[in-house]
Design a binder for these strands. Structure first.
Length: 602
DNA sequence: CGGCCGTACTG
DNA sequence: CAGTACG
DNA sequence: GCCG
C-alpha cells in the first residue's frame, strides 16, 4: 500500500542516524532537494526552529498567514513582505538584491526553481509517522508549523529610501547576512583559504547597499584576515579604534544589560564591541557592520541609527533612566553586583547614605569596605603611582626572598594612562619561594602599613585537578600538579605624607597581588593582562579549537586532565623570564603573539 | 535550539 | 548553594 | 544577540 504523499524533504535535525535512514526508506516521495519539496518534514516543534532550518538550507520563503489562501500571490503581499519578521532571505534569492541579480552570489539552488512548487509547508514529523500508522494521509493542517511562499518574483522598484524603509531593507537583506554581504576585493591581501564560510568573494557591495548608504558607489574595504574569526584573542584590539564613538554607544547599552543582570546580552554586546574595536576602517554602511563577527542584524540596525542620528535611542533612554542610575551607583560598590544592587533598590534605597543609614549591618564585611572607600575607589590611578606601588611590593617580596620577578599587568600593561586598580604578578624561579608566599607578602605589607584591608586572600591550595586518569604515561616534564596561583585582593594606602595634616590624605587604592609558580607564570601574565573579552575568547578558543582548559594558573588537556607545559624550553629548562613564558604560551596555543596594547577588547 | 570562561572565596 | 570577583 |  503506497500512500499518496506530497513531495517531502526530510530535515535531518534531531534525528539519529538510524532514525534518519529508516524514515528515508519509508518516504515514497522523498526528495533530497529542498527546493522541490511541497512538504518539509522535521523533528521540530517550534516555528522559530523552522525558520532556523529554512535559513540553514538556504530556502527563501515568506510566511503565509493562516488567514491567507495558499496559492496565487495576493496584491497585498508586496507591502507585507517588508514587515514580516519571519521573512527569510538568502544569498541565493534574487530578492536579496532586489532584482539586481548577482551571478556571483548564486550557485546551486536557483536552477531548480523553475519546476519547483511555489509554496511549502513545514510539518511535524508526527504527521508522517501517524499517517503511516493510520494507513492514510492524515490532514496536514494539524501538524503544520509554518507555511511559506517561495521567493522567486522580483518586487517593484525601490525608491530613495526613507530611514524607516532603509531599516527594513537592511533587515531583509541581512536576514541571512553573512554569506552575501561580506565582500572583499579581489587582490586584497587576505586569502580565501582556511576561513570557511566567510570567504565568498564579491567584487562590490550588493545593490541594496547603495540605496541605503549613499548615492555614489561605495566599495567596502576588505575585511582584514583577522576579522574572519569569532575569537577576540586572534585579533589586534587597539585602545583607540576608528569607530570609537559608535562603540561608546554600544557600551552604554551593554552597561544597562549588566545592571539588569542580562549576562548573555552583555556577552553578545561584548563580542560585537570587540569585533568593532578590531575593525581598522571608519565604517560606512550597515552591511559593513553585519559582516563582522559577533555583529548581526541588531548591531547593524543600531549602526544605521547611529549614522543617521549620531546617537542611539536605547542608549539615551538607559542613560536617563533614574532606576538604572541608582543600580549603577550601587553596582560600583566593591562587593555589590547586579543582584544585590537590585535588592538595595527594592528596599527603597537610592543612595549610599540610605545604605549606611538603613542597611549598614546587613552588609558583608567587604561591602562595608566598598562603601567606606567608594569615592576613593572611583578615582583612577596614574601610571606613575601604579609603578610606585608595584615597586614597593617587589621590594618587600625580595626582602622576604631575593630573586622575585614582577610584571605589572591589568590595564596598566595594556597602556591605560590611569587604572582602576593595580595588578601585579610576582614569581620566582625557585618553586619553594612562591609556595605560601602570598600570606607572607600580605603580612609584610600590613606591617609596613601599606595594606589597610584584605578583601580576598586566595591560597587555593596546591592540590587541584588531579584527575585519576591523568596518570597515564609519565609525562616527562611538568609531571603532575602545578602549584597554585595565589592572590590577594587588598586595599592599599601609602602611609607616608608630608603635608603636615594629622590624617593621612593619600587615597585608598585597590591592589591585586598575584603569586604564580614559575612554571605557569606565562599563563598568569597572559591571563591578567588582557581585557575581559580577550580572556573569555581565549578560554573558548582553547576549549573549542584545542581541547584545552586555560586558566591563569595553567593549561590542562580536556581529554585526560594532564597538565600541558608550553612555557619550559625544549629540554624542559624553565623560561628565562615571565614575558618569554607568556610568548611561549601564545605560541603553544597556536596564537599569534599580541602586544598588550592590542588586547584592549573592552 | 543550545552555547556563551574558568576558578575561588564568602556567608 | 547563590553571589561576587578577576582579567 | 549571535553562532554553529
Amino acid at each position: 500500500m503506497t500512500l499518496d504523499f506530497p513531495v517531502i524533504f526530510l530535515l535531518p535535525t534531531n534525528l539519529g542516524a538510524d532514525e534518519l535512514h529508516e524514515l528515508e526508506e519509508q518516504i515514497p516521495t522523498l526528495t533530497y532537494d529542498i527546493n522541490e519539496a511541497e512538504v518539509i518534514l522535521g523533528n521540530v516543534h517550534r516555528k522559530q526552529r523552522v525558520l532556523f532550518e529554512l535559513r540553514k538550507h538556504k530556502l527563501v520563503t515568506e510566511e503565509i498567514s493562516t488567514t491567507e489562501t495558499d496559492e496565487p500571490t495576493s496584491p497585498s503581499l508586496k507591502r507585507r513582505r517588508f514587515q514580516t519578521p519571519g521573512s527569510v532571505i538568502t544569498e541565493d534569492s534574487d530578492t536579496a538584491s532586489d532584482g539586481d541579480f548577482h551571478p556571483l552570489l548564486t550557485q546551486s539552488t536557483q536552477s531548480t526553481l523553475k519546476a519547483a512548487p511555489t509554496t511549502v509547508k513545514v510539518v511535524k514529523l508526527a504527521w508522517f509517522t501517524e499517517s503511516l500508522k493510520a494507513g492514510t494521509v492524515l490532514p496536514i493542517e494539524d501538524y503544520t508549523l509554518y507555511r511559506g511562499r517561495k521567493q522567486q518574483s522580483k518586487p517593484a522598484k525601490l525608491q530613495q529610501a526613507s530611514p524607516a524603509k532603509a531599516a527594513n531593507i537592511i533587515k531583509r537583506a541581512l536576514a541571512d547576512p553573512k554569506p552575501s554581504s561580506h565582500g572583499s576585493r579581489p587582490g586584497s591581501s587576505h586569502s580565501t583559504t582556511s576561513h570557511g564560510r566567510r570567504d565568498h568573494f564579491i567584487t562590490k557591495a550588493p545593490a541594496l547597499l547603495h540605496m541605503t548608504t549613499s548615492e555614489h558607489e561605495v566599495e567596502l574595504p576588505p575585511i582584514p584576515a583577522y576579522l574572519h574569526t569569532t575569537y577576540a584573542c586572534q585579533r589586534p584590539a587597539p585602545t583607540h579604534p576608528p569607530n570609537e564613538p559608535f562603540i561608546e554607544e554600544l557600551t552604554k547599552i551593554r552597561t544597562a544589560r549588566t545592571l539588569l543582570g542580562d549576562k548573555i546580552g552583555v556577552r553578545a554586546y561584548s563580542s560585537a564591541i570587540a569585533a568593532l574595536i578590531s575593525y581598522p576602517y571608519l565604517l560606512q554602511s550597515a552591511f559593513e557592520v553585519a559582516r563582522l563577527p559577533g555583529c548581526g542584524l541588531k548591531i547593524a540596525q543600531l549602526y544605521q541609527e547611529f549614522r543617521e542620528q549620531g546617537e542611539l535611542q536605547e542608549a539615551k533612554e538607559d542613560e536617563s533612566d533614574p532606576r538604572l542610575a541608582v543600580l549603577k551607583l550601587f553596582h560600583e560598590i566593591w562587593g555589590v553586583a547586579e543582584t544585590t544592587a537590585r535588592e538595595f533598590y527594592n528596599k527603597g534605597w537610592r543612595d549610599l547614605d540610605d545604605i549606611i543609614e538603613y542597611g549598614w549591618d546587613t552588609l558583608t564585611r567587604v561591602q562595608q569596605i566598598g562603601v567606606k572607600y567608594y569615592d576613593e575607589f572611583q578615582q583612577k590611578i596614574p601610571r606613575a603611582e601604579v609603578e610606585s606601588i608595584a615597586n614597593i611590593i617587589l621590594e618587600h617580596a625580595n626582602k622576604i626572598h631575593p630573586g622575585f620577578q614582577m610584571v605589572i599587568v591589568g590595564g596598566y600593561r595594556r597602556g591605560k594612562l590611569a587604572s582602576g586598580d593595580v595588578d601585579v604578578v610576582l614569581s620566582h624561579p625557585d618553586k619553594a619561594a612562591t609556595r605560601g608566599f602570598v600570606e607572607q607578602i600580605v603580612v609584610a605589607l600590613e606591617q609596613s602599613n601599606y595594606i589597610t584591608h584584605t578583601l580576598i586572600l586566595s591560597t587555593a591550595n596546591t592540590e587541584r585537578g588531579q584527575e585519576p586518569v591523568a596518570w597515564k604515561g609519565n609525562e616527562k616534564k611538568s609531571g603532575t600538579g602545578f602549584d597554585t596561583l595565589d592572590k590577594a585582593l587588598v586595599v592599599w594606602q601609602d602611609p607616608h605624607w608630608t603635608t603636615g595634616e594629622k590624617k593621612n590624605p593619600n587615597p585608598h587604592r585597590r591592589v591585586d597581588i598575584i603569586i604564580s609558580p614559575w612554571k605557569t607564570a606565562g599563563c598568569a601574565v597572559l591571563g591578567w593582562t588582557s581585557g575581559t573579552t580577550f580572556q573569555r575568547d581565549l578560554r573558548r578558543y582553547c576549549k573549542k579549537e584545542r581541547s584545552l582548559k586555560f586558566d591563569s594558573s595553567g593549561i590542562r588537556s580536556r581529554a585526560d586532565g594532564t597538565w600541558v607545559d608550553f612555557e619550559s624550553g625544549p629540554n624542559g629548562e624553565p623560561a628565562p623570564d615571565m614575558l618569554t613564558a607568556e610568548r611561549r604560551v601564545f605560541e603553544g596555543l597556536g596564537l599569534e603573539w599580541r602586544p598588550p596594547e592590542e588586547r584592549c577588547t573592552g
